[in-house]
Design a binder for these strands. Structure first.
Lengths: 140, 140
DNA sequence: ACACGAATTGGAATAATTCTTGATATCAGC
DNA sequence: GCTGATATCAAGAATTATTCCAATTCGTGT
């Protein structure tokens, strides 16, 4: 399906295919919601939000879409302890600061020139594929 | 109950009370297992292991004990993505390297003098209570 | 020994996520 | 524009880790 502007009411273009993944209407919409709501929503948040524009999508489809987007490196899945997974369209290397008093999650970047792997006492021969940094605390 | 040596066959002493937590037989045993099996076992791992010495303990009790130990800062709970929680008696500040080829989890310490919070672009006023670092990859 | 609060048990309940199956939609080639 | 092959979707059932609950047992202080 071609993304007519009337069907893509967002302020950024969504291509029909990204990284070899067919961008169906549902996936477009899930991605658009993630780009608009930068609050690291859960699958259920996305589900409730998507019903406004595509009332027929099921929660299972939201999960499918999110997984497809994650698998293709278009978004990231973020886990805090055992809480429901959250999703994040920020692909830059970054961590997450979880403000416990408000529940808000802030993206946290490294200061320029910092390479975490250099600062760690890694087991010899370790090849890092992915780094996850989570901070918990509050804003004074 | 006094820890008679016949009832505490480990090579380290377990006090009757730690950090205000009554160390019941079950909690002692859970803690002992964690100290012996440094593989970051799951609650279920501990459950299967504890049946060898205390066959009557329930899985719920294992969860209770683990939670009590975590709450009192005696052990740490470690989460990898959505996998079952793992538990770790290493209280030093450290991260975890998950070797995907073997499934083994290695503790990773910072090189001396490194303070992670200094290297991050934190939101102003952020007070860090806890840091979690997870690395995924393989050993070449 | 007694009473009271804490801990334990076992099973039921919960919640996020995944799986299954049948229905639909989409694509490539003719 | 058709047709078969493939990918996606919807709905609900199933799974899994974990928590909750009610009843019993245990430990500690008196």
């Amino acid at each position: 399906m071609v993304s007519h502007s009337s069907e893509n009411p967002s302020d950024f273009p969504i291509p029909e295919e990204i990284a070899g993944l067919r961008m169906t209407r549902q996936r477009q919409e899930v991605y658009r919601i993630l780009m608009q709501e930068r609050n690291h929503p859960t699958a259920n948040d996305v589900f409730m939000r998507i019903r406004e524009t595509l009332p027929s999508v099921s929660l299972a489809t939201v999960y499918n879409c999110l997984e497809a987007l994650v698998q293709h490196g278009i978004i990231r899945q973020v886990n805090f302890d055992r809480e429901p997974s959250r999703y994040c369209p920020n692909l830059d290397e970054h961590g997450h600061f979880h403000d416990e008093s408000t529940g808000v999650i802030h993206d946290v970047r490294f200061k320029p020139g910092v390479n975490l792997a250099d600062l760690l006492d890694l087991p010899p021969g370790a090849v890092i594929k992915d780094i996850e940094i989570t901070l918990r605390g509050a804003l004074a």
